[in-house]
Design a protein around this nucleic acid. Structure first.
Lengths: 118, 118
DNA sequence: CCAACATACAACCAGTCGGTTGTACGTTGT
DNA sequence: ACAACGTACAACCGACTGGTTGTATGTTGG
């Protein structure tokens, strides 16, 4: 009933936050948001194998946070700012719930002591 | 050098996004942002053991997204909206990098034709 | 042409994750 | 007092993660 089940949006959110939950991936995302980079160029920046970086890029791509385009033998990765914004919107929605609590507490105060409003 | 190493902020970010990368935890966070709930009350909402929900709450607590206060035999959990906001700020900073790319492209256009500076 | 480069992908491994059950301990109501 | 409740925590398990190496395939420059 109230179980958070199989929602499409929740699936996307799982992928988003999982992709962002690794500092190397966040760093890669920063770079490709600032400008296009080939996978091997990215790989040179990190103390791990090319294959490892390739996998990180793949995770970001599957989450829709980055897109790749093939040019010759290189795969150029580019950050998708719209997806990043969507994640931000999710957080904003979370905040909205908190604001709802405030207004409910407000109502409590209203019924609590004598209202100063006369 | 350019490696994203041992930063305090990155550690926190790891915890934040990891905590948010599970739909049950996001759902719990929604509830405790909307108002205080005991762990057992939360547990009744999900099709899993009490211990499992307890662990999810612990993950959110460790990430600083929620705080617990003891009242009698109950542990009341409450969402920390400031932490949620901090996560949002991180995303906004990411967006800023993208805007930087634009302005740099702008500079490219500027240097393309006759340079303004002599 | 061919060596070097860039990518893709599979197989493997240790560690972590999300779930379980079981046990223990403080609190509360009757 | 004591049974029921709420919590805490440890041990365990299968699945997945983040890393590795190795191999195959396409691209490019000399």
């Amino acid at each position: 009933m109230t179980h958070p089940e199989g929602s499409e949006a929740e699936d996307r959110a799982d992928a988003w936050f999982h992709a962002l939950a690794d500092r190397t991936r966040r760093d890669i995302l920063r770079r490709v948001l600032a400008g296009e980079h080939s996978v091997s160029t990215l790989a040179k920046s990190y103390d791990m194998s090319f294959a490892a970086v390739q996998k990180h890029v793949a995770v970001l791509e599957r989450a829709g946070l980055l897109t790749k385009r093939r040019q010759g033998r290189e795969a150029l990765a580019s950050g998708d700012v719209e997806a990043v914004r969507s994640v931000g919107v999710m957080l904003t929605d979370l905040e909205a719930l908190w604001r709802g609590r405030i207004s409910r507490m407000d109502e409590l105060f209203a019924t609590d002591t004598t209202t100063e409003k006369d």
